[in-house]
Structure formats: structure tokens, C-alpha cells
Amino acid sequence: MAEIADTALSDNRLADAKRLHEARATRTRRFLLSPAILTIGIVGLFPLTITMIYSVLSPGTYGGVTWELSGEAYIQFLFERDIFDDTLTFSGSYLQIYGRSIGLAFVTTIGALLIGFPTAYFIASKPREQRNLWLFLITLPFWTNLLIRTYAMLLIIRDEGIINLSLMGIGIVEQPVSILYTDTAVFMGLIYSYLPFMVLPLYASLEKLDFRLVEAAYDLYANRLQVLRRVIIPMAKPGIVAGCILVFIPGLGAYITPELLGGGKHLMIGNLIALQFGSSRNWPFGSAAALILMAVVMVALLVYIRNAGKEGARHG
């Protein structure tokens, strides 16, 4: 009898200890997580809702908004309103900016992939002890100021820059080639800015590549190109997808590069948005433009997640 009571008591104590343990773990976790979650939640996430609200209000005269409901921001995105008779005519100028931004971001992504893949592969095929140093060399520019790097780019591609001076010096061209303030300049700047974003995830997946598989493919009569196409690239696919996302998204929202290298003539979405909060003083339209950018990014991310899901399903 006493024995049974004793066991029951011990089971109670055990349950108590477990409950206490759980409760303490939950409390500790909440305490540890709340500063980061609350700060980001309130200052990083909640303002997105404000942006949504602002996008359906009317612009204030000196910036800001007046609390009057209006769909004007979204209408303005597609139509031009006649000042005199209020009639709407379709206008593609904003769509064009979005189109060009998406195009530029896309071309940048492809360019970065074409340069980044061989680079990542090169690093991954180095002896282990050298890899970190190479990786460091690739990432170092990423950690330096984007503005300054863009400025440095500007220095070398302008008419009096080192590229034109050397081209003229060796007599290839008579007149400087105008690169600055063209889409080409923006494209070059974007590649330059976001190349490390492509190399890092590519390296991460190529590093895991077992080179014995490459040897096996050679052993089975594949040539170099076939090994690349049939073995290496398929294995690097997660890295390729991640790298493309990491280049495409910031490329799409780029502000500094088109600002400095596009010379204000070749606006991208980022400049359009910033302009509305600056000299254009049309916050609702700026908010709407930002939300539309978010939507494009979300679509890109969804494509990524769906692909990743398919990959997972195939492997699982």
C-alpha cells in the first residue's frame, strides 16, 4: 500500500518538474525573443500596413497625406488625368519604368549568373584551405559601402574615366564612348553591386559537390561540357535559384545605381518611389508604387518557393 502511494507521489513530482521546466523554458524563450521580434515587428513590419493605408489616401500639399479616401494613386499608375476635364487616358510611362526595372534586374541576374557560376566553381575546386581566402576576396566588396562602390564605378566609366582614356590612348576610338547615364551603365553597376550575392549561394551548393561524381561521369565517357551540363549544373540548382533570387530582388529595388549611373534619366522603381516621398510630394502614389514593387517581389519569391518545393518533393 505504502509502495503504491510512494510511486504516485513520485509521478506527481515528475509531472510537476516537467511542467515547471516547460513553463520556465517558455518564459525564457519569450523574454529572449521579444526585444528582436517587437522591434522588427513594430518598426519593420507594422509600417507596411501604414503604407497600405497611405496608398488609398490623398496627398498633402507639403508631403505627407490628408485623411481622405482615394483610389487616385492606383489610377495614376495606369492613367493620366487631364488637368482640365478630368478625363482618363491610358499612360504606360509608369508601367514602362516597372518593365524596364524588371528587365534590367533580369538581365543583371543572368549576367551575374554567367560570371558568378564559373567563379563559384573555381573557388569550390580550390584546396579546402584556400577556399576561405577566395570567399573573403569575393565578399569583401559586398561589405564595403555600396554608394562608394557605385561612385568608383562612375569614376571609371565616365567620358573622362579610365576606360575611355585607355581606349583613346591606344587609338581604338577617337571620341569617348558614352557609357555613363545609359541603361548599360546601370546594368554594369547592378552586376558590380550584386555579384557577391550570386557567388555565395552558388559556392555553398558547389562546395558540397562530391568531385568523385565528376570523375565517375568522366569514367563513363562524358566530356567536359557534358559533365558540366549533366552533373555539375543539376547539383548546383538550389544555389542557382537562391543566387538568382538574391540578385533579382535587390536589383529590382535598386536606388543608388540608377540614381548615380542612370543620371536620373533612366529611372528605376526605387527612384520613382523615393521621388514621390521627396520632391514630387505624392506619398500615396509612392506608397502604391512601393506596394506594387512588393507584389512583384512576392511573385518572384512564390516562384522560388514553388520550385524549391518541387525540388524537395523530387528528392524526398
Partner: peptide, 10 residues
């Protein structure tokens, strides 16, 4: 442990 229950102690 030595006659005392310790199963629930940290």
C-alpha cells in the same frame, strides 16, 4: 540516490 528521490531534479 542514497534513498532520496532525484528523478525530477535538475
Amino acid at each position: 540516490l542514497d534513498g532520496e528521490e532525484i528523478g525530477h531534479l535538475p
